[in-house]
């Protein structure tokens, strides 16, 4: 059984990290506990970071929305601070697992688990999320687009703790479409997030179709008319970027078709300024 650590300050947290022994940070635990139970990981200690002040709350600064690492998806969905373009996060969070799990699972935990199909990843990517981390020596910021390196792999150093994620405030419009096997809780067979910013910039992100979530952000700025005109090009780029596998959840062909369909629907909704077809 791993030791359970429950620091209340960052300093205390880093003091608690023992040399040479693996400590895993515990936020919502909805992925970690599954891994522990299956014996996939066997850390010496679990450090519950939910009480650290730096990880708390949802705040809005002049130009950013900041969400702490201890914030659950349920809190995110209920928060009045998450508005305008960032409501895309609420859309995505509402498709994650089920209400019980959303009350435990955190946005940042979902990202740090680095599953290719993580529901919060496509939305956080198109919203240009930036992670802030803390380490005994200080910390850094990491753009989310540079964060994922492979299946369940990311750029964090051992013991580096993500404290929050910041999203530039935007009044643009976001859409997250997720294909799943039942209407209730399920992993994404495919997830596609699209964002059309007020400055015309357009971004897409794909989940569950490659070893990492994919961000496609080289479309430049597009008016609604240009979006409509370049629909096929955008769709082709999305389909071309996807590298899905066939498994028990869906075939490669189906995943590609859903990337195509969802991208079309997202582009159409932005181009025509209509509700997205779900």
């Amino acid at each position: 059984m791993p030791a359970y650590l429950h620091p209340t300050t960052l300093a205390e947290a880093f003091e608690g990290l023992s040399q040479g022994e693996e400590t895993r940070y515990l936020a919502g635990g909805t992925d970690l506990i599954v891994l522990l139970r299956e014996g996939v990981i066997a850390p010496a200690a679990l450090m519950d970071v939910k009480a650290l002040p730096e990880l708390q709350g949802i705040t809005t600064t002049e130009d950013a929305l900041e969400i702490g690492a201890a914030v659950s998806c349920g809190q995110l969905i209920a928060s009045e601070h998450v508005g305008y373009g960032c409501t895309l996060l609420k859309q995505a969070a509402s498709t994650l697992a089920n209400p019980l799990l959303r009350n435990r699972a955190t946005l940042i935990g979902n990202l740090c688990n680095a599953s290719p199909g993580a529901d919060m990843a496509p939305a956080s990517l198109v919203l240009r999320g930036v992670l802030t981390t803390a380490t005994p020596g200080g910390g850094r910021t990491i753009e989310l687009k540079d964060f994922f390196t492979g299946v369940k792999r990311h750029v964090l150093e051992p013991n580096e703790l993500v404290t929050k994620i910041s999203f530039p405030l935007t009044k643009g419009r976001g859409i997250y479409l997720k294909k799943r096997r039942i209407h209730g809780h399920d992993l994404a067979q495919v997830g596609v997030a699209g964002f059309h910013d007020t400055d015309g910039s357009f971004r897409l992100a794909l989940g569950a179709v490659a070893t990492t979530p994919l961000l496609l952000d080289d479309f430049g700025t597009l008016s609604t008319t240009e979006l409509a005109n370049r629909r096929e090009e955008i769709v082709s780029e999305a389909v071309g970027a996807a590298r899905p596998i066939s498994d028990v959840r869906a075939s490669r062909e189906y995943r590609l078709a859903m990337v195509r369909l969802f991208t079309e629907r997202i582009v159409d909704a932005f181009a025509n300024e209509t509700e997205v077809q779900r």
Binding site: R181, I182, H183, G184, H185, D186, V248
Partner: peptide
Amino acid sequence: LLTRNFTDYKIPTFKD
């Protein structure tokens, strides 16, 4: 068995 837990053995819920 490939569908050996609830991750991939999907039972319907009230939403279905």
